[in-house]
Design a protein around this nucleic acid. Structure first.
Lengths: 132, 132
DNA sequence: CTTGGGGGTTCCAGTTAGGGGAAGGTCAAG
DNA sequence: CTTGACCTTCCCCTAACTGGAACCCCCAAG
């Protein structure tokens, strides 16, 4: 299977697949013309990578998960640990974003958004806490 | 005021302040010894930048906001537009993260997390949808 | 035979928003 | 005079790709 076909099946851009080979996450063999040739196992690994990345795991995490995926004797606790850490990071990010959202919503509500130059958003950003 | 003092007052690392000068967001003057000298106005701009960045605005947004901040005749609607777009992006990110969180929580719950190799998380990532 | 188009290949540069650290100039105190 | 804190520039590094240039390969049509 050539890279284009793999891209179609996994949904990953060809560029990304080449990149994954570069950093050692995929190891297709080569045809006599230099083209990459992907086997079923390569396809499975790339599909796995695509899903893990889609769930926000970093490449470092993916590398670890992939190693565990290929190790039949792994303990499921190792996988669960990585996942729990990732969940904690996601929760932290959500909290951050929600705090930003609250602040901006508040500032935005007070701003008329018309042609006048008076703008509570800029006042808030400048450090003037106004009549809070 | 030297850069160290500004760093203390704004909470921004000196490196960041130099970077902001590099990209044209701050324009301190120079002392005869080559040291940067920051005036009150520079301090205000940097404080503004710190807050805007802290609320997740990109540097591009900050540049626009700063221009509006310094333009006494701006219309508040321009500021509000940038803010609303940013709010929409924040909302999209929160949704993404919440979806990831739900999926991972689901997978994680089904995983015993013990010494056995059986792991529903890896099964989920591999594309096996199991008994869903 | 040649041309065209649609694969594929490598390599280089750029993205965000700075961070780390080296090599060296400056300043104030003891 | 020296020490240590502060400042300067410069260059490389990060994550995870993406875009583009220049070039090779293969097949079918005119």
């Amino acid at each position: 299977m050539n890279i284009g076909e793999v891209a179609k099946r996994t949904g990953l851009p060809a560029k990304t697949i080449r990149y994954y080979e570069d950093i050692g996450l995929a190891t297709p063999i080569r045809d006599s013309n230099g083209y990459r040739v992907f086997r079923e196992a390569d396809l499975h690994k790339l599909t796995f990578l695509g899903r893990a990345r889609g769930l926000g795991f970093t490449i470092v995490d993916c590398r670890a998960l992939l190693a565990l995926y290929e190790d039949d004797s792994r303990a499921s606790s190792e996988v669960k640990d990585i996942t729990q850490k990732h969940l904690a990071e996601i929760e932290a990010k959500i909290s951050d974003l929600q705090a930003m959202h609250a602040t901006l919503t508040h500032l935005s509500k007070e701003c008329a958004g018309d042609m006048r130059p008076d703008c509570p958003i800029l006042q808030g950003l400048s450090g003037d806490q106004g009549s809070e």
